[in-house]
Computed example of a mutant assay.
Amino acid sequence: MERYQVSFYSDFSEADRYAVILTNRLQSYYGSKMNPKVSFHINFVLRELLNNAVEHGNAFDRNKKVMCSICCDNQMVIICVRDEGAGFSLDMTAAPETNGANQQRSRGLWMIQQLGLTLNIKGNQVKAIYYWRVSR
């Protein structure tokens, strides 16, 4: 299993930069087996999880870090993102609220699930698993 790890201080521009770097590493690992659709999905998931860690986990505190690791093989891609915030729990079976003050909350995580990823949330760590059978 291949593994990539990064950590950076809480900043949207850093989250964006590392989402691109990690997506490119996965594209290099899988080569032509990673079609543009899969690449787009992985990049979207990385951006969503890293940005959530910066904004909601670390509350934009530039002294706090975001850590991300990716493990991948011919069966799956596992993305783990951890921040230095207090953590949270969320009912992932419900669709995000569509009205009221919380209408923007949990929409990104819900969208990640709609792409077919399995989410596991424990405190300040979110694990997204993309099951993908690749013949290398």
Rank of each mutant, 00 (worst) to 15 (best):
Y130C: 13
L109M: 14
G100W: 02
L22Y: 00
Y9I: 07
E55D: 13
L50T: 03
S39C: 12
N52V: 00
A95N: 12
M34F: 04
N74K: 09
R133P: 06
M76W: 03
V81S: 07
G87C: 02
Y131F: 14
R47E: 14
N35A: 08
R25E: 07
E97I: 04
Q75R: 13
M92T: 15
N24H: 03
I112L: 03
R82D: 10
L90F: 02
N51I: 05
Y130T: 10
Y9C: 12
L22F: 00
E48F: 02
S106K: 12
K64E: 08
I121H: 14
S106L: 07
V81I: 04
K127I: 13
Y30Q: 00
T118H: 11
L90M: 11
N24C: 03
F12C: 03
K127W: 05
A101K: 15
Y9A: 12
S7V: 07
L117C: 12
V54Q: 07
V6I: 15
T23I: 01
G87Y: 00
I129R: 01
Y18L: 00
V66F: 01
V134D: 04
L49M: 08
D11Q: 12
S10F: 00
S13M: 05
V66L: 01
N102M: 10
G108E: 05
G57S: 06
A128F: 02
Q5K: 13
L50Q: 07
V20H: 05
E2R: 09
Y4N: 03
V20D: 09
G100R: 02
R17P: 02
V134L: 04
R136A: 11
V126D: 12
R105N: 11
L109H: 12
M34P: 01
A53D: 04
T98C: 09
G123R: 11
N52F: 00
V45C: 10
G57C: 01
H41P: 08
S69R: 08
D61N: 10
V45G: 05
S69E: 11
E14T: 01
G31R: 00
M67L: 13
A86E: 15
K37V: 12
G116Q: 06
L26A: 00
V77C: 04
A128M: 02
T98Y: 03
I121V: 15
Y130A: 13
G87H: 03
Q113M: 11
V134M: 05
C68I: 07
N63L: 05
S89Q: 13
Q113E: 07
E14R: 15
A59K: 15
Q5E: 15
K127A: 11
M34R: 00
Q27Y: 09
R25D: 03
K64W: 00
E14I: 00
I78W: 02
V6K: 06
K127S: 14
N99G: 13
Q27I: 04
I129T: 12
M92E: 11
L109F: 14
T98L: 11
R47I: 08
